[in-house]
Design a binder for these strands. Sequence first.
DNA 1: ACAATACGTAGGAATTTTCCTACATGTCAA
DNA 2: TTGACATGTAGGAAAATTCCTACGTATTGT
Lengths: 101, 101
Amino acid sequence: MFAALSHPVRRDLLSALLDGPETAQSLADRYAMARPSVAEHLKVLRDVGLVSERQAGRNRFYSLTPEPLTLLREWLEPYEQFWRGRVSRLATLLEMDASHD
Amino acid sequence: MFAALSHPVRRDLLSALLDGPETAQSLADRYAMARPSVAEHLKVLRDVGLVSERQAGRNRFYSLTPEPLTLLREWLEPYEQFWRGRVSRLATLLEMDASHD
DNA sequence: ACAATACGTAGGAATTTTCCTACATGTCAA
DNA sequence: TTGACATGTAGGAAAATTCCTACGTATTGT
């Protein structure tokens, strides 16, 4: 998951699919890269379940399946708690400080 | 940021720092890897601002500075909206279906 | 001053990732 | 059927990442 998101082209592909499904071809046209390279990036995204494909004649439509991103959200949680903890400790300190003036 | 999080050892280091600051040494002791390798991972995390260091004599304490993770949270947002959108469209369909029985 | 400890970094080997050019397959249109 | 399009994959070069040992520097305790 994290590895799949580590490449800017792959994040860009996901972002492109936010507007709806697109064919492999039209996705590839967005980049200076050769088409097969984009196909490999799509494969990485497919392997972690972030996109799914639907064959339609000689086109293949890719669409976004963001469910696996809930893992990322869950991973993030302890760090957000950590962050809130720090803020509230700071607030406590400020209160203590305010109390002796 | 995404690249910094792509390596399991680096994610583990962040996780270790949730419990509070630690010296480079004690962090390195957690892994089978040689200490300088861990030091390089710490450097990557430092470069993206996810950890900060405080020199204390011959020890160097690392602590978690999770602020940059807000970028991740922001990145995630459109995908969560996308997801909610899909769920609500599904709900609409189910309602429509329920209405003709 | 000297030895030991804690640490970062240089240099390089091994591995992985990225990206390319073929190439093979399946589909459509004439 | 034949030719053009859409696509995935194989094979390999190039680039990046990872991890090691060796080394340099600063600090501490004796």
